[in-house]
């Protein structure tokens, strides 16, 4: 496998933080991501939380890779890239990002219960604030996924965007998708991935 771009990065551990809302499919993305990174010869650790939070709560997954990884978990100010599957979640977890880190944010709003019941308002100005402070890539994953034919493939659109933003293009991700996604859903997810790479 051609690994030139990756080999340079082998020396230091990289930290990817995926955040979203329970049910948005962050777990599948981390599964594909870790499989690809492992294939590329990295030591990989991944951490996610199951259970209560998955019922529509705020969820995070952390992926770390490099020559040798000890901790599966990072703390504040340690992530190199933050991929937010939902806009407000980007803000909630932003202090985990290094000041010079990259944000990939899905331009998609899911109101939380206090917002839905009218007790609070969905915050304004998120994208502007992100752009003012970080290298920010805004992705309309919902629209892209809907155009492809299944809104549920938003997560793989975002994977494509992550791969592009973080320059992980040396891994054959299509092959990894083939190995991790069920046949029925494969074609549409490959489309979603490619779409994410183009956005």
């Amino acid at each position: 496998m051609p690994l030139e771009g990756l080999v340079n990065k082998m020396n230091s551990v990289k930290n990817i933080l995926l955040v979203g809302v329970g049910g948005q499919g962050t777990i599948l993305v981390s599964k594909v991501l870790t499989a690809g990174l492992m294939k590329a010869g990295y030591d990989v650790k991944m951490s996610e939380v199951h259970g209560m939070a998955q019922r529509g709560g705020s969820v995070t997954t952390q992926v770390r890779y490099g020559e040798k990884v000890y901790s599966p978990l990072i703390g504040k100010g340690m992530a190199d890239i933050l991929v937010a599957f939902e806009k407000m979640e980007a803000v909630r977890w932003i202090d985990y990002l290094k000041p010079d880190g990259i944000v990939v944010v899905n331009n998609y709003e899911i109101p939380s219960m206090p917002i839905a019941t009218g007790k609070a308002e969905y915050p304004h100005g998120i994208l502007e604030s992100l752009k003012d402070n970080f290298k920010t890539i805004v992705i309309d994953a919902a629209q892209a996924a809907t155009e492809i034919g299944n809104i549920k493939t938003q997560n793989i659109v975002l994977l494509g965007a992550l791969v592009k933003a973080f320059n992980l293009t040396e891994v054959d991700w299509i092959e990894v998708l083939r190995e991790t996604i069920t046949e029925k859903m494969l074609d549409i997810n490959i489309k979603a991935f490619n779409r994410g790479m183009e956005l």
Partner: peptide, 15 residues
Amino acid sequence: YESKTLDVEVVPRPP
């Protein structure tokens, strides 16, 4: 570790 927060008020997201 250095980190930044944004001037945007986030609303809790309980399950």
